[in-house]
Amino acid sequence: MTTIAFIGLGNMGGPMAANLVKAGHTVRGFDVVPQAQEKARANGIEVLESAAQAVAGAQVVITMLPNGKLVDAVLTEVLPSASKGTLFIDSSTIAVADARAAAEKVQAEGHRFLDAPVSGGITGADAGTLAFMVGGDEEVFGEARPLFDVMGRVATRCGDVGAGQAVKICNNMILGVHQIAIAEAMVLGERLGLDPQAFFDVVSNSTGASWALTTNCPVPGPVPTSPANNDFKPGFASALMNKDLNLAKAALEETGTSAVLGQAACAFYQETVDAGFGDKDCSYVIEQVRDR
């Protein structure tokens, strides 16, 4: 079994680390939030006083952090404590350029690096059914695969470092568009007198089906586990969707790519966050559609 340092034990990182413990690995973690620390300890994770202490003696370091700036700061802190040849896996969602800069910093110190953002939200993290999209050397990916298999249902090597982040922002741009489209269609259906269950039964088995409907249905009832049944407590918060769509927007501008729907989704979620609903699930946009 492997000794793993897990930095970032929040809504996603906490359950991911807990699943590694359940699989028999030794997990040493760090998070700045006391509640996250307490929950991690209850799940068998040894919580240290600093990220550097957690990394000392670990064979693998996994980071799950809010942004690229914090990933860079944590790497700067922990690299002096890492043993030569440590495998670093960053599962944060950050810019492609930030992932490549992180890899350069890690590799310059004689370590290995993979960018491995995830899809599946808090539910997937809890259940160990995340989808990992990975960038990095094929041999290093093979070494990390057993860990991905514990935390997720599928891991796909997408190319060299940065490719995982590239797929992630593309995937979440699709999700943002889908979630808004489903919201608009369901509100239209309501106003045409359609019962939401009838709408769901037909569309979920037709060409309009998507994860945004079949798993994250934005109205209570048809999917009992969707956040709409729990006051939109987030599986994937609107603030995080907004962050990812802004990463996609920056990539669109950098590459000179036109994406009318992607840009519109970015603006829509920015409005949702600005209105004070960033802590609601991304499916909460249905309420924004109704208000409009």
Rank of each mutant, 00 (worst) to 15 (best):
D244A: 04
S210G: 14
E271A: 12
F268N: 11
P234A: 09
S238W: 05
T214V: 15
L240F: 11
A237C: 04
A248E: 06
Q263A: 15
G256I: 05
K249N: 15
G262W: 06
G235W: 05
V260E: 08
L261F: 14
N242H: 08
A251G: 09
E271S: 14
V219E: 03
N229E: 05
N246T: 13
F236N: 05
V219W: 13
N230I: 07
A239D: 14
S238H: 05
M241N: 02
T225P: 04
C266R: 14
K233L: 11
C217Q: 13
L240P: 07
T225S: 12
S226D: 04
Q270L: 10
L247V: 06
T257M: 01
P218E: 03
K233S: 11
A264M: 09
D244M: 04
S226V: 00
P227T: 05
A248T: 03
E254K: 02
W211N: 04
A239Y: 14
L245W: 06
L245Y: 10
L252M: 13
L261S: 00
T215G: 03
N230F: 11
Y269F: 09
L213P: 04
L252Y: 05
A239G: 07
T255P: 01
V223N: 03
E254T: 00
D244E: 10
A265L: 13
E271L: 12
K233Y: 00
A250F: 02
A239V: 12
Q263I: 15
N246G: 15
A250N: 12
A239P: 09
F236L: 06
T272Y: 00
C266I: 12
L245D: 00
L261N: 03
A259G: 03
S238D: 08
P224C: 07
N246Y: 09
S226N: 03
